[in-house]
Amino acid sequence: MENKIIEKQNMAPFVDNLINAEAEVIGPKRKDGKYAFDKLIETGELCLDYDTTLLPPKMYLFPPKETLIKFELGKEPKVEPVAEAKPLILFGVHPYDIKAIELLDVAFSTTNPDINYLSKREKAVIIGVDCLNPNPNAFCPSLGTATAETGFDLMLTDIGDSYVVAIGSSKGEQLLTKYAETREASQAELAQRNSERQKALARYKVTLNISPEELPQLLGKSWDSPWWKEKSEKCLSCGSCIVVCPTCFCFDVQDDIALNLKEGERYRQWDGCMLADFAAVAGEGNFRGDKESRFRHRMYRKGKYIWERYEKLGCVGCGRCASACLAEIASPAETFNKLKEESK
């Protein structure tokens, strides 16, 4: 992979050029003492040294609410598909979120390719940035998601006075040539990047005591553990953990109609297995009607089912769920570590 250097003072012009010339640029900005991805109006808003964002950048590829079809009622109803997409630059995406997007790519393109996701994905440029300042609940190194080798067009690493830029695609290279002032990276600078990444590893506070490859097997034998009931007792079924998760991709579908009761649309919106009615059917039936089975299902998705289905991790260790969960039970790391201990 080719690497370049952008001096820090040249970063702002690069971003400004992208904002002015290229496309909508989305980046992490400050929000009430935390960070959130949002449209950048000017470079000054961009915070590349953030820990993590409230919501993951997947929201720009798989929006919280999205129209799938439009229809018009009548004797001969009319229906048409809707798949809106515009060019987008996701600037400052952390490696774990890049890995999560790689999972979504697979989930939305396997078997029945999803035009709504894929058309947005095709138009999106991903400019990553290494996470040197991890949030206290993150455990990326244990899952191999602290850095990314693929899944980006460009990847930045802060090495003090400048950024090393790894070029991941020709699209990324073109943007760089067109809009940034760069120079070749020296061996010393690449070594510096490694050392920054190494130092960052030491800043993670949570570690898994099991390797990700062993998770499916561990979960395979943990179904009857008392942990599920015990821990889920406090669950509020509030869905915070699944809403903030970069790898969750479940949704609900509903119809809406205009006031003329004639035109309408069918839309999807984020939904998830921690919400009480996710598996409920008409009448009184609910196939996961208790907190315990929902709590267990989510953990199995994260550590086993997704892996078995898509050969990708169902959790990238970002720690957002743990930060969001008021009941303090949502962290997969805590559950996996506990089960590992139990299995000894």
Binding site: G33, K34, L54, L236, S240, V243, Q254, W270, A276
Partner: peptide
């Protein structure tokens, strides 16, 4: 009519709010 049967937190998170407990 579909009136949600999930807590306000879902919409609050979707709105991108910082949780009041964090403040």
């Amino acid at each position: 009519p579909e009136i949600p049967n999930y807590p306000v937190c879902v919409e609050c998170k979707l709105a991108g709010n910082v949780c009041t407990f964090d403040k």
